[in-house]
């Protein structure tokens, strides 16, 4: 058992790599699709919707097969790891786009009006006000998607990537104790998920602190109207 630990850890490392890279791609696509989807012009929103609806409606595994086995027939041979990351990123990014769109649309209209009153353009409004406020609302559902992506990576062995599940299946088929090898698989996936959730919770705490939420931010009562400004200054 101890002899094969490096193999397991290697599998864990591959799973972590796919999860992190897939999540980075999914996050970028989520923002692209979500911002397109919350645009004012209908045709821009339509671009976001086409991506979201297509990749939400396609099984990640089928997409992975298509990228790895079918694409070579039209002259594109993808590295299996890259195909896995691309399939998972495209799939989860479609769900993430809806999270971003929902969170952006949930930023109060009064905040948008304040940016107009300060004459901010679209990019300034989004970068300085809307996205920083929407980010805190996005994080909990994004955390769920991250875990889904990590668990969804358990099928990448089917396109020859030696991730954790791939290693476990190998160990099992070469005589490993069923209870032990699959028990280890459960344990490792659980630990990876916990590590990811810890990271997400840290980001949530930071995002909430930036919005002035949490124990450190309590409004001090104003000492009557005494400190009212202007007096001769």
């Amino acid at each position: 058992m101890l002899n094969s630990l490096p193999l397991y850890l290697n599998g864990v490392w591959v799973t972590v790599q796919i999860t992190v890279a897939g999540a980075a791609l999914a996050l970028a696509l989520s923002f692209a699709a979500g911002l397109l989807g919350s645009a004012r012009r209908r045709w821009i929103r339509a671009i976001g919707r086409v991506y979201t609806e297509f990749f939400r409606g396609v099984a990640a595994l089928v997409l992975m097969y298509w990228l790895f086995y079918a694409l070579p027939y039209v002259g594109f041979r993808l590295d299996p790891m890259f195909a896995a990351i691309l399939a998972l990123g495209l799939n989860v990014g479609a769900y993430g786009g809806e999270v971003v769109r929902g969170a952006v649309n949930a930023v109060p209209r009064a905040q948008i009006e304040a940016t107009t009153a300060l004459n901010m353009g679209y990019v300034q409004r989004m970068r300085l006000v809307v996205i920083p406020q929407a980010w805190a609302a996005m994080l909990p559902p994004m955390g769920n998607l991250l875990i889904e992506l990590m668990k969804g990576s358990a099928v990448v062995g089917l396109i020859t990537v030696s991730d954790l599940t791939f290693v476990v299946r190998q160990q099992w088929s070469s005589g490993g104790d069923t209870l032990v090898v699959w028990g280890l698989a459960l344990l490792f996936y659980f630990l990876i998920a916990q590590a990811l959730l810890l990271g997400v919770r840290y980001l949530e705490r930071r995002a909430n602190a930036r919005l002035g939420r949490g124990p450190a931010f309590r409004a001090a009562p104003e000492p009557a109207a005494a400190s009212a400004g202007g007096s001769g200054r």
Binding site: G212, A219, A220, P221, E222, S227, A228, G229, G230, R233
Partner: peptide
């Protein structure tokens, strides 16, 4: 300074009263 809140420059809006 003009609005009488010079000392609140690094405060967060949630730490201020409505008037502030």
């Amino acid at each position: 300074e003009l609005v009488g809140l010079a000392e609140k420059i690094d405060a967060h809006p949630t730490q201020l009263s409505g008037g502030q």
